[in-house]
């Protein structure tokens, strides 16, 4: 995208809300763009998008777990079920990138190949470019775009540890996929990240005994309420390749979503998470100097939480203010 061809933020937001594929692609490219004029345009676009009801609804689901556990395959199977239920699905698949060249192989899409003429599915791959504890800085704003256009937005991330925490700080519902037989999963859960997933699923149940063993180990470890409260973490069994257990998995996700809605938690949760993201982003862009000038982390965070102005509008205002500080101190040449 040449800077001369930056899209009109308002028009773009409207087109995204209407679910237009070409607009969606343009928006995602814009959010990925690091040039400052593009960032400005992106912020305006997001602010406008947030005024639209659409991105306050939908379901934002994180799917995580060790490499090879079958996250992408399960995603593909879930897409089929969701499509049968009449839901439109957007996917953000995050793959690791090479520290040496910065290059990346984005392989998740391969497993998600779905009907090629289905407008109800959109898959975007992202390289985690070594930021945000492994999650691309772009994931979050991109998830808002997806939420605006689709009924379900799913974020796949790989790895064990920090990244799970990141993804769970971004999504309404987090699902952990365990690989049968690998001690990893149990280890991981014992390592104190038990709070993270809302749903546990042991994939590859077609492997038989070994999958059943892992299921019972995890079941024993997880028979407890989620730290969010009001939620018993289900431990499920499925096979992405056989297509078994997928309906039940989709049902569990739906139940969690309904619980959030019923308890009126969806809005506040997203607000809180988004405030955290904005802080990170400001820090990233302007450093601690900028944050201090705006009154410090705590102050900004609290402000973002209470005001009912759309978050990205606030973000845009904060950005303008910070840019203003810089302009003030710029020597006149």
């Amino acid at each position: 995208m040449n800077s001369s061809e930056l899209p009109d933020p308002a028009e773009l937001a409207d087109a995204v809300s209407r679910g237009e594929r070409a607009a969606l692609a343009t928006a995602l490219n814009l959010l990925d763009d690091r040039r400052s004029e593009s960032r400005q345009c992106a912020a305006q676009f997001l602010a406008r998008l947030q005024q639209d009801e659409s991105c306050a609804g939908g379901r934002l689901i994180g799917i995580t777990g060790p490499p090879g556990a079958g996250k992408s395959s399960l995603t593909a199977a879930l897409i089929t079920v969701w499509r049968q239920r009449g839901l439109r699905v957007g996917v953000l698949a995050v793959d690791p990138s090479s520290p040496v060249s910065g290059g990346a192989l984005l392989g998740d899409r391969l497993r998600m190949k779905t009907s090629s003429d289905d407008d109800g599915v959109f898959v975007r791959s992202l390289a985690c470019r070594g930021e945000f504890g492994g999650l691309s800085a772009e994931v979050w704003p991109m998830s808002l775009v997806m939420l605006a256009a689709f009924d379900v937005t799913l974020i796949e991330t790989v790895g064990v540890g920090q990244r799970e925490i990141d993804v769970s700080r971004m999504c309404d519902t987090t699902c952990y996929v365990a690989q049968p037989g690998s001690g990893d999963s149990v280890q991981f859960l014992k390592a104190g990240i038990l709070e993270v997933p809302h749903i546990l699923v042991v994939n590859k149940e077609d492997m038989g005994a070994v999958a059943r063993r892992t299921l019972s180990e995890l079941g024993a470890a997880m028979n407890r309420e989620h730290s969010d409260g009001h939620w018993q973490v289900p431990v499920l069994s499925a096979s992405a390749t056989r297509g078994s257990g997928i309906e039940a998995l989709a049902d569990a996700m739906e139940q969690h979503h309904e619980m959030l809605l019923a308890r009126n938690e969806l809005g506040p949760r997203r607000q809180r998470y988004q405030a955290q993201w904005i802080l990170k982003r400001l820090l990233d862009e302007f450093g601690s100097f900028g944050i201090e000038r705006l009154g410090g982390e705590r102050e900004i965070f609290d402000q973002l939480q209470v005001q009912d102005l759309a978050l990205f509008e606030q973000y845009e205002q904060l950005r303008q203010r910070t840019v203003g500080f810089y302009n003030d101190i710029q020597p006149v040449l």
Binding site: G103, A104, R109, L110
Partner: peptide
């Protein structure tokens, strides 16, 4: 391509 720093999307053979 990855070695050279590209982000590569490749889904294997036989696509329409």
């Amino acid at each position: 391509g990855r070695d050279a720093g590209f982000e590569i999307v490749y889904e294997g053979i036989r696509l329409t």
